[in-house]
Design a binder for these strands. Structure first.
Lengths: 228, 228
DNA sequence: GTAATAGTGTCTTTCAGACACTATCCT
DNA sequence: AGGATAGTGTCTGAAAGACACTATTAC
């Protein structure tokens, strides 16, 4: 039975997003192999049935191997499929979105580049569509959930977190409303006695994610992110 | 290259939902083949690379063949994968949610049964998880979009539409707020001069979906459904 | 002191739910 | 007339944004 339908290529692709220079940026990887060898594309690869527990595991492996990133926020985005999207044949790509703070990134590998999602180069396959889909998802979830915290480091101030929301949403947000919202979401807590220092101004309270919200590996969609 | 990773089973499964007796119900299909022959499960099947354009097309084919349903509202749900979910081996199931009005259903085939999503029998594979995921998705989208209109027929009254929302959400909704919301969503229009008749009470205005919102075949996630 | 950013108190506007009323059919 | 459901006008309370104020640092 299983041998009757072997001719579908099963892959994962990952849209890894971070905040650089105030922009939401995506990691692109220069393809070594055909098709589209030499072109910038999303990091991705075949599912390894022998090694991967499931598709999320495969996506995590791709992130480790191609971006040097471990245990980021990882969420299933959607699956792109069909006869036309890959010249090698009928293919399935299970796409994931991953968020990492810039500080958690390793020194950039030579085959990899960051590009702002608003100024993307031409991408092979349907990768442009996948990135757009990812950005739309992250934007939508920023409206009602705490998703953008995963773009901040382990310790962050509320103004930094607000800047992360603003970068994702692409527009300024009201400070008072923002703090009210973060407060009711209840997903961050002040670090006792920890403040920023150095600026010629009042120091800011440092916060961290509450324990229950660290290491999120949601299967997909609306997860545990204390949505409204 | 393609021949190196052939051992992943590619399938689609469909959670077909409708409104029966005031309940949200899901179509279950009695399996003819092993594994789990004779058990009730979600309608699904292998992707046919020769015949299907993409996974959504495969899902539509499954719905035609196993439920006799044509061109319903069809939306990608999520993809379930891994070594453990199917005894035949490492598998990928691209799951879809479909909504149909009860009136658009053909006479029930003998291998198929409807079950309320709140009183499901035991299901094989991870189908229980898939159904729960689908119900959660439909509930979430009912909060801010016009999704439940696809459970109503071609012509419907606002009280009927409200009942559809209430069945999906599992709780009563405020009549005034409901009508305000439907009005701002702007996705339905009154049918000029068409009213219900027969009851011992005031007739209700009949509505229909606006042209732009018919035949939705969203790839996934938050689509064209005029979300808020 | 001033400049700069952090953090809060409060007013106003906007929106959702509650309630009550009117409208229109049938018997 | 009276019962039943459809549809609307309006009040009220909650939540979101605007604005202005206080707080704490460096110089």
């Amino acid at each position: 039975m299983a041998r009757e339908h072997p001719n579908v290529l099963c892959t994962v692709d990952v849209v890894l997003l971070t905040l650089r220079d105030g922009d939401l940026q995506v990691l692109l990887h220069r393809r070594a192999a055909e098709p589209f060898a030499g072109a910038l594309a999303l990091p991705g690869g075949y599912i390894h049935a022998q090694a991967d527990l499931d598709a999320a595991d495969a996506a995590a492996r791709v992130l480790r191997d191609k971006a040097g990133v471990r245990s980021p926020y990882l969420e299933q985005l959607a699956t792109f499929s069909g006869a036309a999207r890959d010249p090698r044949g009928w293919s399935v790509s299970i796409a994931y979105v991953a968020l990492v703070p810039e500080a958690a990134l390793p020194p950039p590998a030579e085959a990899a580049t960051w590009k702002p999602v608003e100024r993307l180069p031409a991408l092979p396959f349907d990768h442009r569509q996948i990135v757009d889909h990812a950005v739309a998802r992250v934007r939508a979830k920023a409206q009602y959930s705490s998703l953008p915290v995963h773009l901040c480091g382990e310790r962050f101030t509320l103004p930094q977190l607000q800047a992360a929301y603003e970068a994702v949403l692409g527009e300024p947000v009201n400070k008072v409303s923002f703090r009210r919202k973060i407060d009711e979401l209840g997903i961050v807590e002040p670090i006792d006695g920890a403040f920023t220092a150095g600026g010629a101004h009042r120091p800011a309270q440092l916060y961290r994610l509450r324990k229950a919200f660290r290491h999120v590996l949601s299967t997909s969609g609306r997860g545990l992110n204390s949505g409204a």
